[in-house]
Design a protein around this nucleic acid. Structure first.
Lengths: 343, 343
DNA sequence: CATGATTTTGCACTCGAGTGCAAATAAACT
DNA sequence: AGTTTATTTGCACTCGAGTGCAAAATCATG
């Protein structure tokens, strides 16, 4: 079992080494380790024994080179300030790993990184590319599509590029429900805080918000925009709004595009002593949303199902459906409730 | 520039394709793209032109196979509940990417994953393995060390395995300073909350805490232990302590092994109306630590320097120094200040 | 025992690139 | 022109595995 022989450690054990020890040819070794290959059971046994003894681990680069599959999947991520990304990453990598796939993570911060990162994915023969809620503009996604024909799946956002597979949550219905909840409890003056423009229009959340307002003839709304999905940005943008607005003109409800922005917003309100005077909602249901310090009313996304679906599509290309939107689940806590009357 | 020829997209462009177009041999193509190779400037130009026209991108798997380097680095992570991990991952991947290296991320949740994940790293010929603050017991780390001779660097924690490169923050001095700060303002009764046992003893933080207490003859302390580095665990463990202790016996200071636990602890205190009655400190300086809702007094780790050093060591093996501990920086906010007297 | 049917195995090839060496070409010099 | 020297290029090899095909070994049958 344990390789006690020190010279095994000196260099990588190759199929030829195993062949020599087992007294067969290099190719018989391949066959012994392949299910369903034509080989005498007895010599298979001998090879397996030898392989174990030497601690043989086939070189996957070599295998990938000749076969089609490399068993590597590229994960393209950005917006790494949002803790939600950690959850997504974690679940995605776990599920990939479970299926015997490796995760090549490509972090994008500037647009220029983008092309180079993808070139790399292609050069490493990645079996597929998963976009995890990236803020990339559609034209870039389109560019990837034509690149080496790697199956490409966009997750956690929409896109109107044709033929791109999309696996996302129905942000429209989610935010629509949240906004309706605020309307039911009598909120009149609404604000919406979005993230970076390029992705914001691809989440459908802003549209759900606007739709709810329209259905009640509440045309007027304040639109705020954060440049990143980070707590700090949510905080800064909210402060700027509060400082630049007369106190008697404050909105009474702020719908945030996601939790991390909402948490920043709550922090800002708290600091200014306005907690409970503006109702807040988020999206994602971060762990922190359940904290007694925030008690954020929000929507949770069916992460496990989304990721499962995305990987399934990655492995079996040419899916009938181009796009799937799963329903979010409303999580009602108390951040949407007004506890103090505005003066 | 743009490959307008549709058949280019049909299959991968190989060096042979470029050679044919440029009217040279396949090997000349290799040379044209290699700096310092002996080649006529004129034919190099021709090759480069042809390569650009076809959109040639050398297959890195093939290159890795024959050369020593694969340009892939395996990142081994766990404890993915802690948002701090996201920052570390982000910075590490960015720095690697900047140096032309790819990140193979291996997520470990159970010990059994561990062996299989590392086997994969080895099979993919990873140039090195970076352990990012993993909770793995030392014996496992030792096992990796003997595996394929991949350079191995343990970050954000210590280990007493010989010959393992360590790049970490001096947790001892950090927590010692934090504890001293609490002592200076008159705290008498201390508690310490640690994370999973296997890593906790490798951070040096608990020892720094104990040392500070000893230096003041304050032998008595309460030790709490969380099973994960997560807000929820920090919260649960604190609640359990508060519920299981008489109110007049509460400690007046709680030193937490890191921020995410501290934030959970503050949440618990807040919920029970005990905010300001127990001083709290953390470690890591999460973004959330700066939130007005927490104002956590903590230590920040020199992430950029740590990661830079780790990668440097990965690339140039046989470093003289086996282990480096960088000093943390004290971040003083207000969570360590007692604002209410205990009844 | 010879013939045919079947299993097992070895060998030449593939993947896509890189490297050292030797042959072919070009340039420099007597 | 003839020789030496420098430059450029082609070819055989390498990495480590997998696959199809044909040769070799085994088996079964008349």
């Amino acid at each position: 079992m344990k390789d006690s022989n020190p010279e095994n450690l000196a260099r990588k054990v190759t199929a030829a080494d195993v062949a020599k020890l087992a007294g067969v040819s290099r190719w018989t070794v391949s066959r012994a380790l392949t299910d369903g290959a034509s080989i005498a059971p007895e010599s298979r046994e001998r090879v397996i024994q030898a392989a174990r003894e030497l601690g043989y681990r086939p070189n996957l680069l070599a295998r990938s080179l000749s076969q089609k599959r490399s068993n590597m999947v590229a994960l393209v991520v950005d917006e790494m300030q949002n803790p939600y990304m950690l959850r997504i990453l974690e679940m995605t990598m776990s599920q990939l790993q479970q299926k015997g796939l490796m995760s090549l993570v490509l972090n994008i911060s500037r647009e220029s990184d983008f092309a180079s990162a993808l070139t790399r994915a292609d050069q490493f023969q990645a079996d597929g590319v998963l976009f995890l809620g990236t803020v990339l503009p559609d034209r870039l996604i389109h560019m990837v599509e034509n690149m080496g024909h790697i199956p490409l799946i966009v997750m956690y956002r929409d896109s109107d590029v044709d033929d791109v597979q999309i696996v996302a949550t129905d942000g429209f219905s989610g935010t629509r429900q949240l906004t309706a909840l605020l309307q039911q409890q009598g909120c009149q003056r609404f604000a919406y805080m979005s993230g970076p423009g390029s992705v914001s229009t691809r989440l459908g959340r802003k549209e759900g918000f606007a739709d709810a307002l329209n259905s009640q003839q509440q045309a007027h709304a304040v639109y705020l925009q954060a440049s990143h999905f980070s707590r700090q940005q949510g905080y800064d943008v909210t402060c700027r709004y509060l400082d630049g607005t007369l106190a008697d003109q404050y909105v009474d409800a702020l719908v945030c595009e996601n939790d991390i922005l909402a948490i920043g917003a709550i922090d800002a309100l708290r600091e200014k002593g306005l907690e409970g005077q503006i109702a807040i909602t988020g999206f994602d249901d971060l762990d922190l949303a359940a904290s007694p310090s925030y008690q954020l009313t929000t929507c949770s996304q069916p992460d496990a199902a989304l990721i499962d679906e995305a990987i399934k599509r990655l492995l079996s290309p040419d899916q009938e459906q181009r796009r799937i939107q799963m329903p979010p689940q409303l999580i009602i806590r108390s951040s949407h409730i007004l506890t103090q009357q505005a003066n």
